[in-house]
């Protein structure tokens, strides 16, 4: 099963073995990774599961949807590499993925 690493803003690393099919948000929440709030529960409606993903992974992550883009538009500290973790589904192709968490979810 794929291993995903979440790196908190303070540098703390959490490497999790996740089941394909869950979202990166669900994976973090179910293992109590601090720094992801996920207020809306995965509806792409609150932008509190904001993460940064290295551009090298873009091909394997799936496209950013219009709603995700519009929600990210209002998130804090958005960069080119910003995504919402609820919109990325874990698969074998993501084995080894490292995602970084922002200073705060807003």
């Amino acid at each position: 099963m794929p291993v995903i690493t979440y790196v908190e803003h303070n540098g703390a690393r959490h490497s999790l073995t996740l089941k394909p099919g869950v979202s990166l948000m669900q994976g973090a929440i179910s293992h109590n990774v601090p720094g992801i709030d996920a207020d809306c529960g995965g509806a792409c409606a609150c932008a509190t599961c904001h993460i940064f993903v290295d551009a090298a992974w873009n091909d394997r992550l799936g496209e950013q949807g219009d709603i995700e883009a519009s929600m990210l538009d209002f998130a804090e500290g958005v960069r080119e590499t910003s995504r919402l973790a609820c919109q990325i589904t874990v698969s074998e192709a993501l084995d080894g993925l490292v995602v970084h968490l922002p200073e705060a979810q807003h």
Binding site: D39, A45, M71
Partner: peptide, 15 residues
Amino acid sequence: ERPRQHMSFGYGIHR
């Protein structure tokens, strides 16, 4: 368990 899961702030672009 999940106290932040409420609707009081609204959801979507007008949150």
